[in-house]
Design a binder for these strands. Structure first.
Lengths: 110, 110
DNA sequence: CAGTATCCACTACGATACTG
DNA sequence: CAGTATCGTAGTGGATACTG
């Protein structure tokens, strides 16, 4: 799979680079991780859970994750507003792969 | 594995975060990838192959990859200098996992 | 050949205030 | 509650020149 890079002579076009681009950013993986654990989470719950994240970063990260179809956003038209975030099926399938990285990291930490 | 995060309440401490930290940076994966394909590569070969990378980035990336023991650096004491880089066994084992991400990316590109 | 050193530019992110 | 807008900062990478 990696050797596709050679043929294309452009790393940006590989599936690997594409996958990484989906999770780049300081908090995207943390967000995905929270959604995996809690399944359905509201905006402020997420903010409280992660703690150190700013509104701006949480907001833009969620928008990008939604655009990349890794998460679902469900908005309830009511006052006060209520929005629930959850992993999409696509997001879940990616998380399965990423879990392997976690295992490697645990085993191979120096 | 991911749920270790919950127990630790600190994403930075997870194996996942650790693994990502090893490959963070614009070109580290590209370098690792080149070493996987060509096996033994000299500094300027690497530079020529990657093309867009600057000396500074290539130099610091190689140093960090070496420090993290993902690559080997072999220096021949001669004039002009000759240095060969290659994947370590540890590096190879990580690349096997990362290849999965490549496959996912190819299958799931939108 | 295999790097360092220096300076500059860009962007990601944080803090804070404001809004429907 | 669930965001957006604005401003400021810090770290990452690029261009270029220099060296053993």
């Amino acid at each position: 799979m990696f050797k596709d890079y050679l043929d294309k002579s452009n790393f940006e076009e590989t599936g690997f680079s594409y996958t990484l681009s989906l999770i780049s950013g300081k908090y995207k993986m943390v967000i995905l991780y929270c959604l995996m654990e809690f399944e359905i989470v509201r905006y402020n719950e997420l903010k409280r859970y992660i703690g150190t994240i700013s509104h701006k970063t949480l907001s833009t990260s969620l928008k990008e994750l939604e655009k990349d179809q890794l998460i679902n956003r469900k908005e309830y038209p009511q006052i006060p507003p209520k929005v629930e975030y959850s992993l999409s099926e696509r997001g879940k399938s990616m998380m399965e792969i990423l879990d392997q990285l976690c295992i490697w990291g645990e085993k191979n930490r120096i």
